[in-house]
Design a protein around this nucleic acid. Sequence first.
DNA 1: GCGATCCTTCCAGTCGCTGGAAGGGTTGCG
DNA 2: CGCAACCCTTCCAGCGACTGGAAGGATCGC
Lengths: 130, 130
Amino acid sequence: MNIGEISKRSGVPAKTIRYYEDIGLIQPERTPNGYRVFSETDLHRLSFLGRARKLGFSIEDCRALIRLYEDEARASAEVKDLAMNHLGRVEEKIAQLQHMRNSLVEVIEDCAGDHSPDCAILDRLAGRML
Amino acid sequence: MNIGEISKRSGVPAKTIRYYEDIGLIQPERTPNGYRVFSETDLHRLSFLGRARKLGFSIEDCRALIRLYEDEARASAEVKDLAMNHLGRVEEKIAQLQHMRNSLVEVIEDCAGDHSPDCAILDRLAGRML
DNA sequence: GCGATCCTTCCAGTCGCTGGAAGGGTTGCG
DNA sequence: CGCAACCCTTCCAGCGACTGGAAGGATCGC
C-alpha cells in the first residue's frame, strides 16, 4: 500500500509518516518509481506510534516502546518504568499549569473589566501587588 | 546598566533579553563600544515581561499587554479579555493533559511490571484492548 | 601586561511536526 | 491519445521561545 492509503488506515498524516521514516521509526520499501510501499507490519507500527503519541509519549519514548514491543525477551517492568516516568512528567506539567491557572483566576477576579483604565491584572504584572 | 546587571535585577537571562530586543519587545540604547545600556524603564518592562511569561502569556500576548500597560486610555475590559482567553487555553491544555494522565494511569495499573514479557501497556498500544 | 570576566554577533539546535514549492507518476475519462 | 485530477517525490522554511556555543572584542583589577 502507498503512503496515502496507510495514512488513511493508520490515521497518521502522510507528512508525519515521511518524517517518521526520516528519523528511522519506520523503513518502508520503495517501488522502482520511488514511491514508498508499506506492509501490514508498517501499518501496525504506525498505529502503535499514533496511540503512543496520543498518550503523550515523546518520540524517543516511542522508539524505546517499539523496541520493547518487538523484543520477546522484554520485562514488562521496563515498559512500566518508562510509562511511569512519562506519567510523572505529565503530572508535573499539570501541576505547573494548575498553578498558572490559579494565579490567572486570582488576577482576573480582581479586574473590573470595564471602561476604566484601572486594571488589577496590569498592576500585578507591573509588580504592584495588592 | 548593562545586560549582566539588568539580567540579575530582572531575573531574565541575558540571552533572553537579547532575544527580546531582536523581536522588538525592548529597545535599549548602546554605548559607543556597542554595549547595550538599559534604563530603569527597561528594568520595569523586563520584570513585567518576566511575570507575564510566568503566567504563561505568549510573546504576542505580552506585546499586547505592554501596549495596554502603556496606553493610558485602555479599558481594563480589554486586558481582562486577553487574560480570559489565555486562561481558556490553559484550562484546555490542563484538560488534555488530565485526559492523558487518566489513560496512562489506567494502562499502567493493568501492567504487572515484573520479569514477564506480558504487558498490558504494550497490548493497549498495539490496539489489543481488553 | 595579563588573566578573568564582561560584552558582541551569528549560527545551530530544541520538539514534532506542518506548509508549500517544484517537479514527476498514475489514473480515468472523453 | 490528450488532458485533468490527483497521487507521489524531495527539499526548504517555519512554528515558539528560547538556549548553547563559537569566535572575537572590551573592560577591569592587580
